[in-house]
């Protein structure tokens, strides 16, 4: 298993880093964020931009870089299938997965595991929530 994981990582890491500047959080949500990696946001925001985005669309922290979420919003509007996924409520990051293969975590279901108290968890009664769209 170790060997397989290392082999997968040898492909995944350079590929995703080159294309998306992936930060290897091990729980990929690129399809929900217009293919803009949210972990590049200095505040690690997974659910949308902060209030500090500059008038020109650049990041509050890095004045010379586009806000990751401005790119995410634009990107999401171009995605044919996953367009509405930007409105999904993303669960807290599992920091134990940092540096592991998101592909393996996807296949094993490991990246879908939310803390037990996180509301969409099936084992718990739902609060009266509006449906999240498709």
């Amino acid at each position: 298993m170790r060997v397989i994981e290392r082999l997968v990582l040898a492909v995944e890491k350079p590929l995703k880093e080159a294309i998306w500047d992936c930060q290897m959080c091990g729980q990929c949500i690129l399809h929900s964020t217009g293919l803009s990696c949210p972990m590049r946001c200095p505040k690690n925001l997974r659910n949308g931009p902060c209030g500090g985005v500059r008038p020109d669309g650049n990041c509050e922290v890095y004045a010379d870089k586009r806000c990751v979420w401005v790119e995410a919003w634009e990107g999401s509007q171009r995605l044919p299938v996953f367009k509405s996924h930007i409105h999904h409520l993303q669960k807290p990051v599992d920091w134990q997965l940092q540096g592991t293969s998101s592909w393996i975590n996807l296949l094993s279901g490991r990246d879908g595991k939310a803390p037990l108290g996180w509301s969409p968890h099936p084992a718990l009664p739902q609060r009266g929530r509006v449906s999240e769209g498709e």
Binding site: R46, N47, K91, V93, P115, G117, H121, L124, R127
Partner: peptide, 26 residues
Amino acid sequence: RIYDIDSMQLLEVAAAMRDRGTYLSG
């Protein structure tokens, strides 16, 4: 910087503490 969870998730956590009486851990 900490940013362990984001503000959206903190809203959910506070609401769950109130409405379901649980921590994020369950």
